[in-house]
Design a protein around this nucleic acid. Structure first.
Lengths: 366, 366
DNA sequence: ATGAAAGCGCTAACAC
DNA sequence: GTGTTAGCGCTTTCAT
């Protein structure tokens, strides 16, 4: 296998045409519309191209002319490690990539860490549309995306009027978890949640922060929990909520530790992600708490590892989410009305939830 | 938050300039070289732009002019699910994405499933270079990439003269595993390996297929094993090698089953990836074989789950691999000589390897 | 500090 | 089946 020359693009479509003594159109057709010229001529063109080291039409020039970049951008503001280590995020990425593959278009990951307020990358991306995945509602990159005159689909959050969106039925999902917990009899609960804004707060979350969370999904989940538990007679102000900025299993563990240290009487820990729940599970083990006898723990997402661990959680179809976003975007055409696609979720009751030990057991127990 | 108009790009840099009664240069400068015009004029330009709904310079046109796409392509020929479900591959992807982020360039995933022989996507990608990850040496997409007049870096495989490459010291790695097994005293071994070519062969692997494998890495690993074991007096023709086309834990399990059914006297199973090894581990459990007392199992990669499982394996720095590839590509400039970067690996002896039960134990055992 | 001129490399009408 | 004509929207010397 020998290397082609790596010198600066020497031949262009025009020079090839000149060399051959034909028009540029003909050369262009040789590549793009084989049926528009005689096979013989086409053969000659391609052969000469090879001889001259002409690599075929320049993709950028073609894009300019055709007004199609052949790629969709993916905005994923969280720092990448956050995304690449969350199986749920990877599922979305895979689904989106699958949809792109089907359509034969590339998937362009936009470099946008939370640190760099540098929105230029969004402007520089040669894409026909954007998928935005789970960013806070005040994200400057998102603003920049919405400025671009191309269709956009948001996955999960935020919810923005007039912008296509695909996400799970979050409301129903979290309510199903909450009802499960309530009906088991739990009244002393605690909540572990993911970051609520772009600022770090690895601590308990006061009410106003819960209500002003910049991540719509987390905000909605907390609100739904509040509603459900208050309906069951639990005063939400008494429910401890602990937040973590990072999203690894260890963070779930430390959050659980912080919460249980301060509220040892809690009988159920509701986590807004499986990752956090897996950490909580580990922490429970470390403290000698039996799950679910001593402590009920629930997650959210339904990732494979959670299933293996028997976690009670709500499963959401992440792969489908990504696929749906891709299809929605690629089929956007000149659609007038915008679309919101809501995907179903499903409560999976595992082996980590059970009724709380009764008050008697607590007071007179072993 | 209100939606910008989604109508076809109405304003261009030229029309903006006309509207303002200034030259296009000035408008361009307002965006790209703020120091080249008076703050006052710049303000006017930007404001008018907003009023006219001009979204800023078109990225594709800019790319054509500057001859910089601001993105690197990633060719990942395997079907995406293969890649997105292998933690080692994800590590590479993350590392590469990190490097791109640092440099402020996008990462363009090229749609190229093995099914679609459609190489056009490679031609259509507006990128400044390519990273190719672990493809067979006869991959047509790879050919297409090499045709393009942009720098290319190959990760892992194949090895091609004159093309930059970054990969682990595979040779040393696999030899360290082999020596470990040999020195423990194993002589009855079996091997589980990943796909050796683009054709499916979920079965035992005859010698000629081993030697002609189109995946360089697998070929090299098998060759190194052969060498090492023959030096220890094991005739390689007697060593069963089972191949799997897919690469999930279940595939490792079924491969182990196939091998152990036919060769029950095997005392050590060498797997060319941790995923396969995890499957083998599961299968061993299913058969009531104790690991490592009854059966030694080793992996390759050092993924997190393997570490948790205590697997004896060779760890390779996947994140670094991706980062190195990105840096190499982005720093390529007009370098003359090509580079090969070899990353160190490390044998991690876990709890899945031990000396074999002696012949006596085999024959007169319980 | 601003403008005029000259393409970057290609494709799409439309004519022949 | 092949060529002619016109840009796509922008940046960049080089003048002024």
């Amino acid at each position: 296998m020998n290397r082609p020359m790596r010198t600066r693009r020497q031949a262009t479509l025009a020079s090839l045409a000149a060399e051959l003594g034909v028009s540029r159109t003909t050369v262009s057709n040789a590549y793009n519309r084989p049926d528009q010229l005689s096979p013989e001529l086409r053969r000659r063109v391609l052969e000469t191209a090879k001889r001259l080291g002409y690599p075929g039409p320049d993709p950028v020039a073609r894009s300019l002319r055709t007004r199609k970049a052949g790629a969709v951008g993916l905005l994923l503001t969280e720092n990448l490690s956050y995304a690449f280590r969350d199986p749920a995020a990877i599922g979305v990425l895979e689904g989106l990539a699958l949809a792109c593959e089907d359509a034969g278009v590339g998937l362009h990951l936009v470099p946008a860490s939370p640190g760099r307020e540098d929105v230029a990358a969004v402007h520089r991306a040669g894409v026909d549309g954007f998928v935005v995945y789970s960013v806070p509602d005040d994200d400057p990159h998102l603003q920049a995306v919405l400025q671009r005159p191309v269709p956009t689909v948001i996955v999960d959050q935020p919810q923005i009027d007039g912008v296509d969106r695909v996400g799970p039925d979050d409301e129903a999902a979290i309510v199903s978890i909450a009802n499960h917990i309530v009906s088991l009899g739990h009244r002393q609960i605690g909540v572990l949640c993911m970051r609520l804004g772009r600022d770090r707060n690895d601590d308990f979350v006061p009410l106003h922060r819960q209500q002003n969370a910049h991540f719509h999904v987390q905000r909605a989940r907390l609100a739904a929990l509040k509603r459900t538990f208050e309906a069951a007679g639990v005063a939400w102000e008494t429910v401890p909520v602990v937040e973590r900025f990072e999203h690894h299993v260890d963070d779930g563990a430390s959050a659980a530790r912080q919460l249980l240290d301060a509220y040892p009487r809690v009988t159920a820990l509701i986590c807004t992600s499986d990752i956090l729940a897996l950490g909580a599970l580990a922490e429970a083990g470390r403290r000698g708490l039996r799950v679910p006898a001593d402590l009920t723990i629930t997650g959210f997402d339904g990732i494979a590892e959670a299933t293996r661990a028997g976690l009670t959680t709500v499963h959401q179809p992440v792969l489908e989410k990504g696929k749906a976003a891709g299809k929605l975007l690629l089929g956007a055409g000149d659609r007038v009305a915008h679309k919101v696609i809501t995907l179903p979720t499903e409560l999976h009751v595992g082996t980590t939830s059970a009724p709380p030990r009764t008050a008697e057991q607590h007071w007179f127990g072993p």
